[in-house]
Design a protein around this nucleic acid. Structure first.
Lengths: 169, 169
DNA sequence: GAGTATAATGCAACAATGTTGCAAAATTAA
DNA sequence: TTAATTTTGCAACATTGTTGCATTATACTC
C-alpha cells in the first residue's frame, strides 16, 4: 500500500520548474544524521524519535499517523507517535500537510534549517503520496496576503502525478 | 461567542481589491429565497434545510458543525446537520473551508450558480470568522497547477482582520 | 560510573468529529 | 389520498486526537 519511490521523476518536474523534494538544500538531511538533527533541535536522542525521523528521511513521501501506527505497531505507542509528530512539526523538522478533506499527513520540511518565513505550497499525489514543492506564490500575490496580516496559510494541491497516471494505463 | 457583523468592512477590502463576501454576484442569494435555492438543487424543501440555509445567508460568516449543533440543539439532530452540510457542499451551495489545523468550517459558496471551475482562495478571520474571497491566483501560476493535473486545491489564509485588530486595542 | 533532574514513553481514559444502518416521519408527485 | 422517495432521529460505531499520571530512559553533574 505504501510505495517508496526513488528518485523522484525529474522530467515532469523540470518542465514545470518545480523543486523536487529530494534535492538542493534538502540534502542537508543527507549530511546530518537523525541523531544530529535531534540534538540540533534540543531533543533527547531516543530510539523512537530516531526511527521515525529516519523513516521520513528514507521514504521522502508524505506519511500520516495511521501509516506510522501500522508500521510501528507493537513498538511505538499511538500516543507517543502523536507526540513525536507534534514536536517535530513544532521544530519544523516536519511539515504538516492538510488536504481538501481535512486529512493530515506529514513530510520532511525542506526549509527547517533556513530562516525562511515564506509560504511553501505543496503538491501531493493522491496515489503514491509523493510530495513536491510548488513554486512560491508570486510576489504581488504574497504582498496582498501580507497586507491582510495572514498568520497561517494552508495550501495543498492534490492530483495524480504523471508517473502514477502512466502506470494506471 | 458567535458575532454576526453587517456589513463587511469596505475600506480594508477595497484597498486590496478583495471581493467582499456579500456583494456582486453573491447577491443572487438575496433574490432567491432558501426554498427556491433548495428546489433549484433538487432538494426537498424541509424545515431543517431551510433554517440552516437561511442562517448561512443571514450570517455570512464561516460556521462549523459545532456552532450549528449548539444553535440547533434540541431541534436538528447532529447527524442530520452533518448530512445537510455534506449535501449542500456537494451541490456547491456551501463551500468547505479547511484551516491550517484541519478544522472544518462552511461558508456560502459565491460561485454556486456560475459555471466556474476556478480556484477561489479564501481568507478567514480567526476572531470574527468573517470570510472574504482572496483574488484568484495569477494566471501563470494557475497554468502550472493545471499542468500538474490538480484535482483539488485547499487554500485558506487565516489572520485577524483589521476590524478585529482595531477592537482589540 | 553513580546520582539526579528532566524528558520521553506507555497506558488508560476521555474528547471531538464524523459515519452507518435502520425504522419512523415528512415531502413530493400522481 | 395514496404511493414512492427523501429526509430525519436514534443508536451504535469508527477515527482521530488529547490529557493525566506513573514508569522508564536520557542527559548532565560530580
Amino acid at each position: 500500500m505504501l510505495v517508496e519511490k526513488h528518485p523522484l521523476k525529474p522530467q515532469s518536474l523540470l518542465s514545470l520548474k518545480l523543486k523536487p523534494y529530494w534535492s538542493g538544500n534538502y540534502s542537508l538531511y543527507k549530511m546530518l544524521n537523525p541523531q544530529e538533527i535531534l540534538k540540533k533541535n534540543s531533543f533527547r536522542v531516543t530510539q523512537h524519535r530516531c526511527e521515525v525521523l529516519t523513516y521520513f528521511i528514507q521514504s521522502k513521501i508524505a506519511l500520516n499517523h495511521r501509516q506510522l501506527e501500522l508500521k510501528y505497531r507493537g513498538t511505538i505507542n499511538r500516543v507517543s507517535l502523536y507526540r513525536i509528530l507534534h514536536s517535530f512539526t513544532e521544530k519544523k523538522i516536519l511539515c504538516k500537510l492538510i488536504d481538501s478533506v481535512g486529512s493530515v499527513s506529514y513530510v520532511l520540511d525542506k526549509h527547517s534549517s533556513q530562516n525562511d518565513s515564506h509560504v511553501h505550497p505543496h503538491y501531493k499525489c493522491k496515489t503514491c503520496h509523493d510530495v513536491v514543492e510548488l513554486p512560491e506564490l508570486p510576489a504581488d500575490y504574497r504582498r496582498e496576503l501580507e497586507k491582510l496580516n495572514v498568520l497561517q496559510l494552508n495550501m495543498l494541491a492534490e492530483g495524480i502525478c504523471q508517473e502514477c497516471q502512466k502506470s494506471m494505463k
